[in-house]
Design a protein around this nucleic acid. Structure first.
Length: 123
DNA sequence: AAGATGACGCCCG
DNA sequence: CCGGGCGCCATCT
């Protein structure tokens, strides 16, 4: 298990949590999820979380603009799964206007911004 | 310890 | 619309 289970860093946990909040028939983006989780600049880590943690609604996570970021057959599968739950596409991208899920912001207050440098390894 | 990597994002031509 | 380039950040080699 050198690579296994691991990284349960707060970052991954928060991100998974956010992903789980996306309702069926709706989608979100890597960037938006990272932000909603409280880690604005960590879009890349959303992908990492999806890869490590199983049981997440991974098909609801898209790249900016509502485009599928995966390649090959995984991309086809993602599109298939999304359409199966009612999400519709406009060309190669999802009609975000109609299907993007907006994360609830606590008390109308936007997520706090990360100091710009990671708050994890930091101290 | 240093460099490379990645289910990303944004700006530019 | 598409490709190329640069920035982000925790992990991995």
């Amino acid at each position: 298990m050198t690579r296994a289970s691991h990284p349960k860093t707060p970052l991954i946990t928060a991100i998974c949590n956010a992903i789980r909040r996306i309702p069926r028939g709706r989608v979100s983006t890597y960037g938006a999820i990272a932000k909603a989780a409280g880690y604005p600049r960590c879009a890349r880590h959303v992908g990492r979380a999806l890869r490590q943690v199983s049981g997440l609604p991974w098909q609801r996570v898209l790249g900016s603009g509502g485009r599928i970021s995966l390649r090959g057959e995984s991309a086809m599968e993602q599109r298939f799964l999304l359409e199966a739950e009612g999400v519709r596409f406009k060309g190669r991208r999802v009609d975000m206007k109609a299907f993007e899920y907006r994360f609830a912001t606590p008390g109308g207050k936007p997520a706090k911004k990360l100091p710009r440098k990671s708050a994890l390894t930091r101290k």
